[in-house]
Write a protein that binds this DNA or RNA. Sequence first.
RNA 1: GGAGAGGUGGCCGAGCGGUCGAAGGCGCUGGACUGGAAUUCCAGUAAUACCCAAAAGGUAUUCGUGGGUUCGAAUCCCACCCUCUCCGCCA
Length: 427
Amino acid sequence: MLDPKLLRTEPARVAANLARRGFSLDVAAFNALEERRKALQIRTDALRSERNARSKAIGQAKAKGGDVAPLLKEVEALGAEQAAAEADFTAVQGEVERLALGLPNLLHESVPDGADESANVEVRRVGVPRTLDFVPRDHVALGELDGGLDFEAAGRISGARFAVMKGAVARLHRALAQFMLDLHTREHGYTEAYVPYLVSRQALTGTGQLPKFEQDLFALKGENELFLIPTAEVPVTNLVRDAILPAESLPLKFVAHTPCFRSEAGAYGKDTRGMIRQHQFDKVEMVHIVRPEDSYAALELMVGHAEAVLQRLGIPYRVVALAAGDVGFGSAKTYDLEVWLPGQGKYREISSCSNCESFQARRMQARYRSPATGKPELVHTLNGSGVAVGRALVAVLENHQQADGSVRVPDVLKPYMGGVEVIGPKA
RNA sequence: GGAGAGGUGGCCGAGCGGUCGAAGGCGCUGGACUGGAAUUCCAGUAAUACCCAAAAGGUAUUCGUGGGUUCGAAUCCCACCCUCUCCGCCA
């Protein structure tokens, strides 16, 4: 959510910023609504004040043993008027809130212009794709050779956009997640978190997936309304919901390995082959809760942590700064990490690191006590993949493949692979 | 699943129809005391929205959440959520 004060005082600036995303904010309509809300609030407050004063008078008169009948009659007349004002106020307030929850975050000034991903700016390229003296296979072909990737079985069990992994491939998948968690907790100072995979509407509203993107989520049928998490960002960031944190406790750095569930409602026909785009995938997620002045340094730090994963796996990648039109709803600035996939001959997203500034914090009421003012102030929240496990598996398979269709296990994963050094095609 | 207890400010905890945004304590801030500190003493210390150029001040809302009763609700009633204890069941 945006700062309502900023929206009121500098609507033109806000509109101009949001326009960079391609989002058009009707400033006049918003202001008109705000004015109505304000007027109604003043009126409602005045009527309440009147009622409170009279009720108090009744109490005092009673205490003195006076006759309260005339006073009671007076208050009665006030009742209807007050109830009406109250109802109007509640309605308008709800309207304002609905509108406010639908506005995306303001972009940081450093975000490059551009309507879509074609305008993303490459920041750096790390590692060089191997020159192969054979035609590279994609992960689907490699998985078939080994027998460890079974989309056909997944289709029978659940339908399209699911995967079954078996044997060495399944183990490699597990090894990747373990390696990432260990790296982040041992070397990058993260606290490991295990969190619920089912979350409330409130939690999803806090991080910004709701109310706008309900169609991308899987909802459970049942008495309690629950949704499957689309990312660990939701439960992990909500760890600080409604909290007033001591300043010295910041920054908080959490890492969690969870499955993620996305209905990918708008992705028909995209990436239908293989496990690039699935309804269910695993991800190791990093979340930072920081003081506002530290959030952009934290973003760079977090990107570095994600990069470390790829570097140790020996996978070439590039870092791109997302263009205005490609930055997600709640983010002020986002870097994507894209890995080289020889099977596709292009770089594909494997991590997305975002600084949400106070956007989520305001929705969640996540605050810290500022040493400067002594008052509670909103924290800044960041989240980033460190990294997507399924896509990391794809990257390892494709980048470390050999002419015969076998795949060399990266050194850093060997301790997790129980001595397996090569994932081989079944004879 | 059964029985019981409870959810109050940054934290603990009292209050159980009006003068309660809420005693007391802890913590924190300022002051006194001290060579400096500890102890002790004094004072201050919730959030949000709105009015106000700002400060000061004022008004409203907030005692798990949502409804209800009442002129008036932390306090009474109903529903729901959560926590704890015991029993049952389980991983």
